[in-house]
């Protein structure tokens, strides 16, 4: 694991990944365990139908016509709010710790005294962020695959995989914001702040766009819309939405690449 920057960075993340995985698996398993009490219960669907639309929107739920089906339940309980939070916090922590983290710790000076180009350093660090976030997505998928049959949930493994991918991609988008901010500024605190701020603002933007008419078009600016506007667990991956998020990640990767080339290291 000490062969290159990519593997070394993953190695540094192994504990963090293990703890987040444990928490995520536990939470997902608990939620799935409650499903039998909801399944096919018309009273609960009535309750959900009568819920104020505005409140639903603020909770990140755009459409929920079938809360008692496996996919509808998972969307309402897991993928609307908790899963995005977990993936965003996880990826922002990694992204901020990547380039800016090595500078904050002072270890960048030793690392860049080796014959490694800055280009390669950014690429390998970014790749490790992608790999670790994808890893957490994989864990979520496997956990749901294992838990769903136990709770009598009939849902296709492909749908669950698509849901896992979309959650990882949303997390990665904000992780890449933190990564880019860190690559440009070299400050970890700033990176976390920028990414957390971006997440909060774009979340609200998307939620309010569903309530306030004149804010309607603002949803196009929010990564949350491309995650939640057409939920993957209900309808599969929306190619267009997925493409927008992927494009955002690539754009932020390019910003990181260019930003880190130009500046002095913060030592």
């Amino acid at each position: 694991m000490l062969r290159n920057v990519f593997l070394k960075t993953l190695r540094d993340q192994r504990r963090s990944l293990a703890w987040w995985s444990a928490g995520l698996v536990l939470f997902a398993a608990m939620m799935v365990a409650f499903y039998p009490s909801v399944s096919g219960n018309p009273a609960i669907q009535d309750y959900v139908d009568n819920f104020p639309k505005e409140l639903m929107a603020l909770m990140g739920i755009q459409e929920l016509t079938d809360f008692t089906s496996p996919a509808g339940y998972l969307q309402g309980e897991l993928f609307s709010i908790m899963v995005p939070i977990v993936f965003i916090v996880f990826a922002v922590g990694l992204g901020a710790g990547s380039i800016a983290g090595e500078e904050n710790e002072g270890t960048m000076e030793m690392l860049l005294s080796e014959p490694v180009t800055r280009e390669r350093l950014v690429l390998e660090k970014f790749a490790s962020l992608v790999a670790a976030t994808a890893g957490l997505g994989l864990v979520l998928w496997l956990a749901l695959m294992a838990a769903a049959p136990l709770a009598g949930m009939e849902i296709s493994p492909l749908r669950l995989l698509e849901a896992g991918i979309s959650a990882a991609l949303l997390g990665l988008a904000f992780g890449a914001v933190a990564f880019a901010a860190g690559s440009v500024t070299g400050r970890r605190g700033v990176s976390v702040g920028v990414a957390a701020g971006a997440a909060a603002v774009t979340y609200l933007l998307n939620a309010l766009a569903g309530i306030v008419d004149y804010l309607g078009p603002a949803k196009w600016l929010s990564p949350f819309f491309y995650y939640n506007g057409d939920p993957a667990v209900l309808n599969g991956l929306n190619i267009l939405h997925t493409g927008v998020l992927l494009g955002l990640v690539l754009l932020l990767g390019a910003v990181s690449y260019a930003g880190f080339q130009r500046r002095d290291l913060r030592l």
Partner: peptide, 25 residues
């Protein structure tokens, strides 16, 4: 290079740190 204030990876042993540096070379 010896930096004025060498900051090394605290969680690695000396052996691991040097192995990492050697791989990068």
């Amino acid at each position: 290079y010896i930096p004025g204030e060498p900051a090394l990876y605290k969680n690695l042993t000396g052996q691991d740190f040097l192995a990492y540096a050697a791989s990068l070379r």
